[in-house]
Design a protein around this nucleic acid. Structure first.
Lengths: 112, 112
DNA sequence: AATAATACATAAGAAAATTAGGTATATAAA
DNA sequence: TTTATATACCTAATTTTCTTATGTATTATT
């Protein structure tokens, strides 16, 4: 796991990117997907995730659709067109930020 | 300027890296150096910088040396050996984090 | 003379995560 | 069969950290 301070500020970007590439996802699924894709290095906590999802919904960036799975509720989130362009902005900004940090921290780069 | 949420968590890493490469620096100098190196894209605020410097000093990561420049005080910070290895850890961690994010966000760069 | 730049510092408030707890069903292991 | 783990949602108190604002004071520029 990375130090939490490092991950801070990337939560929204991660959520929006995942929802840009998947029609719909529910909260728990997002935590599992991120854990899987990062080999456990990023593990979203529910206390951070759910309030953020609610805020994104309140701002018209995501919409929800509650579904019954057996006797359990599952809340699917879908990204809106507004959300999709926000996602692109966020990813681009992060990429720009990384380039700045690479220069500032004097790191070496390799294209793949 | 990047959104502040994005910069959060990198402040210590930036400070420690700069002080690893410079014998001594004072607070104001750090803000100017970061501003200069990032073309104004990262501008450290005093309200964030000074408390962080004080905390790093309290934890034995930095030591200080106050100097009179004319009638004005300047507080030089120097990194300790403990601080130097922490700096390396922090930079390595950030690099690792970037690689994880590059993969997660499906970007085309990789740091070495 | 007034403004901007240099140089330090702190305190109130806001924002966001952590920690901890709550509810509940389904499945696997002991 | 009972216990633990996994699934699946949620929120509230606390902590952490930054922003914003303010304060002091010297030096340089307009």
């Amino acid at each position: 796991m990375y130090s939490s301070e490092l991950i801070k500020g990337t939560l929204k970007t991660i959520i929006l990117k995942l929802l840009s590439e998947n029609d719909k996802m529910y909260g728990y699924e997002i935590t599992q997907k991120v854990k899987e894709l990062t080999g456990g290095k990023i593990q979203l906590t529910e206390g951070a995730l759910y309030p953020t999802l609610h805020a994104l919904e309140a701002n018209g960036i995501l919409t929800t659709n509650a579904v019954n799975v057996g006797n359990r509720i599952r809340k699917y989130y879908t990204i809106t067109p507004t959300g999709k362009s926000l996602a692109e902005e966020k990813v681009t900004e992060f990429q720009d930020f990384m380039n700045t940090m690479i220069f500032l921290l004097d790191l070496k780069l390799k294209t793949v």
